[in-house]
Computed example of a mutant assay.
Amino acid sequence: MSLILLPRRSAFRLLLGGVALAFLVAAALVAAGFAVVSAGARGPAPDFSSRPLRVGVGWLPPPDTPDMRLYVEEGFELDLAAALASALAAELRLVLVAPEAAEQALKAGEVDLVVTRAGAEDPLRRRARVVETGFSSGLSLAMRADRPLTAWSRLQGRIVCVTEANAHGLALAVRLGAQVRVLRAPAQALMLVRTGECDAALHDRALLDPLFGRMSWRKFSATLPPVEPTDLVVAVAPDDPGLAAAVEGALRPLSSPQTWQARREKWAATVSFEVYRDQVAADCH
């Protein structure tokens, strides 16, 4: 198991992608404090004044380097981790926890909570206190409109781009027999679809839809019906009801469809810009 205590620049990078999210959580805790206090019968409110909030995630961001480009991440796990730490007035410590190891990490006390994806029948839902975030999606593809694949089975032998953080997508592509190319960020994977180096890029359909609505993506908006839907959740140990209540109170104002629609649109706009930036830079060289 790996962990990282975020340096100042990394913490800023995580919060930059979710400024609205962090602001709303911080403001909401003032109002949500009554929810945490009223949950006192279910356990004491957490206190992280003397130690960091340890958040398990399935992927850790790479170390900062002076020449490193900033990219929006595949999903919202890191944004949520940063926002929750801010809301709980805690220093954030990210801990690498594979999705299948979430229950054990919570049980062993190696993390305080895990931000992960869970399907409807995921055992984690029965073995931990699971707080819903309001974000759900199945996996889908971005392809060139002039030569789309017509079925998921057609991915066999094709070059499919996935990101390092998209373990679910990687597993699906491997099962389907695709030639997988793993990239650092969504913009990089999607750019290779535009250049023809990848036959498809695999991402959440909930994030691809607003991207496909942009004029510049119409030629690259061929897709397939989404599969294997999961929800973004925060899992807390079953014996820590106080922390679960605090997390629930912090996330409550962020769970509306309107809030997530705005974040999806922002993700699409940022990724589209990053693809343009990288493609122009490549063309100039």
Score class of each variant (00 low, 15 high):
residue 4 I to L: 15
residue 7 P to K: 10
residue 17 G to I: 02
residue 21 L to P: 00
residue 22 A to S: 13
residue 26 A to Q: 11
residue 28 A to M: 04
residue 29 L to A: 04
residue 29 L to N: 07
residue 29 L to F: 06
residue 32 A to L: 04
residue 36 V to L: 03
residue 37 V to A: 12
residue 39 A to P: 06
residue 40 G to W: 08
residue 40 G to D: 06
residue 44 P to D: 01
residue 46 P to W: 00
residue 47 D to H: 04
residue 47 D to A: 03
residue 49 S to A: 13
residue 51 R to M: 10
residue 60 L to N: 11
residue 60 L to M: 09
residue 62 P to F: 04
residue 68 M to K: 04
residue 70 L to F: 15
residue 71 Y to E: 10
residue 73 E to T: 15
residue 73 E to M: 12
residue 75 G to A: 12
residue 88 L to W: 05
residue 89 A to P: 14
residue 95 V to R: 14
residue 101 A to R: 15
residue 105 A to L: 04
residue 105 A to M: 11
residue 109 G to H: 07
residue 110 E to Q: 13
residue 113 L to I: 03
residue 117 R to V: 12
residue 123 P to K: 13
residue 123 P to G: 11
residue 127 R to I: 02
residue 128 A to M: 08
residue 128 A to E: 03
residue 128 A to T: 12
residue 130 V to G: 06
residue 131 V to G: 09
residue 136 S to R: 14
residue 138 G to L: 03
residue 138 G to R: 08
residue 142 A to H: 03
residue 142 A to I: 06
residue 149 L to A: 11
residue 154 R to D: 13
residue 155 L to W: 13
residue 156 Q to G: 12
residue 156 Q to H: 13
residue 158 R to T: 10
residue 159 I to S: 08
residue 159 I to L: 00
residue 161 C to Q: 03
residue 162 V to H: 06
residue 162 V to T: 13
residue 163 T to G: 07
residue 165 A to T: 00
residue 168 H to A: 08
residue 168 H to F: 01
residue 171 A to T: 01
residue 176 L to Q: 02
residue 176 L to S: 00
residue 180 V to Q: 02
residue 191 M to C: 07
residue 196 G to Q: 06
residue 197 E to H: 01
residue 201 A to W: 03
residue 204 D to E: 12
residue 210 P to F: 13
residue 215 M to W: 07
residue 217 W to E: 13
residue 222 A to H: 02
residue 223 T to N: 07
residue 225 P to C: 05
residue 235 A to N: 08
residue 237 A to K: 02
residue 239 D to G: 10
residue 239 D to M: 11
residue 240 D to P: 05
residue 245 A to M: 02
residue 246 A to H: 09
residue 247 V to M: 05
residue 254 L to V: 08
residue 254 L to Y: 02
residue 255 S to W: 00
residue 256 S to I: 03
residue 257 P to T: 07
residue 258 Q to C: 10
residue 258 Q to I: 14
residue 262 A to W: 12
residue 269 A to D: 10
residue 270 T to K: 12
residue 273 F to T: 06
residue 279 Q to L: 12
residue 279 Q to V: 01
residue 281 A to K: 03
residue 282 A to E: 15
residue 285 H to S: 08
